[in-house]
């Protein structure tokens, strides 16, 4: 516990973190480069990712095709680059949609407590009762397979976590005297929730969300793999692995490179999530 840490601004602490936490830097570099690739895939990809060329099918990695080609002769390197777009979009959309549903529920449940809390939390518990991935599979099955339906399904099965996390920190913040004093001046409950309760209880949710970013990408890839998520011609890493399922023992590169891309992005996202936790919680980084 050093006295000066409290006075550091967020930017200064971020600077400290970059200097002292190598893994955070790794995560940051990974995230930024994937973002760059996703935004510029159209220009930096050497080949058209959809161009079919049967004369060049299932070629091993070479200077011509860095990651080889798939069963239709498409350039895997270009496809991996384009796949970054889908995966990043997945992460961002699922997490923000889940936050959009989860945060209001958690906020209201935590702030009011009592019967309202009971009802809201029992409803969210229903969603938690299913084994992970089973619920998204069921929802996608009902909605019909497709990338956006899969994202919706993932968000629906993800929001209860955010609702629960926010609820518990709102319950703690609710006892803070600044909330009491706002109540004493007769402030409208909605205003208290938004101005006082929410800004002071979001840290754990943000941390969780930044970690989940990686998991949702993984989950979306899994859904695609079993045919419940993205459908061709959408370029998605999970889908790429799935379509090489029967041949990857002989042509390892068809599954290896999309898999590697998933692995690196998820790993980077988790490192970033760890770093963000340190950033938002000065007590935590102090103990290092």
């Amino acid at each position: 516990m050093s006295a000066d840490d409290q006075e550091l601004s967020l930017a200064e602490r971020a600077g400290d973190l970059i200097k002292h936490n190598r893994l955070f830097v790794v995560g940051l570099v990974i995230a930024v480069s994937f973002l760059f690739v996703a935004l510029t895939a159209t220009w930096i990809a050497p080949k058209d990712p959809q161009a079919i060329d049967f004369t060049a099918k299932l070629q091993a990695p070479s200077l011509q095709h860095f990651f080889g080609t798939d069963v239709l002769g498409r350039d895997i390197f270009s496809r991996v680059l384009h796949g970054a777009r889908t995966s990043l979009l997945t992460g961002v959309l699922v997490v923000s949609l889940a936050l959009l549903i989860g945060l209001p529920i958690g906020l209201v449940a935590g702030y009011y407590g009592g019967r309202i809390d009971m009802v809201l939390m029992r409803v969210t518990d229903v969603f938690l009762a299913f084994p992970p991935l089973l619920l998204p599979i069921a929802i996608t099955a009902a909605l019909g397979p497709g990338l956006y339906n899969a994202l919706m399904a993932l968000a629906i099965s993800w929001f209860p976590w955010y609702a629960r996390i926010l609820r518990s920190s709102v319950i703690a913040v609710k006892e803070e005297l600044y909330v009491k004093s706002s109540q004493a001046m007769g402030m409208h409950p909605i205003r208290i929730m938004i101005k006082h309760a929410l800004p002071n209880s979001t840290t754990p949710v943000i941390v969780q969300a930044s970690m989940d970013f990686g998991y949702t990408i993984l989950a979306a890839a899994s859904l695609s793999f079993i045919g419940m998520g993205a459908r061709p011609p959408t370029i998605e890493w999970g889908l790429m692995i799935s379509s090489s399922r029967s041949i990857f023992l002989e042509y390892w590169w068809t599954a290896f490179f999309p898999g590697l891309a998933i692995f690196i992005l998820v790993w980077g996202a988790n490192l970033l999530g760890d770093g963000i936790r340190d950033l938002l919680d000065p007590h935590y980084s102090d103990k290092k």
């Binding site: 803070e176 005297l177 600044y178 009491k180 004093s181 706002s182 004493a184 001046m185 007769g186 402030m187 409208h188 205003r191 101005k195 006082h196 800004p199 002071n200």
Partner: peptide, 27 residues
């Protein structure tokens, strides 16, 4: 109006002083 015991908990850490003190007037 009221002044509470613990000044470390009675001021919202995410608000500026002008907003904290002005809040009763605003409401």
């Amino acid at each position: 109006s009221v002044v509470f015991q613990n000044p470390y908990s009675s001021l919202n850490p995410r608000m500026r002083i002008i907003d904290i003190v002005g809040e009763p007037l605003l409401v």
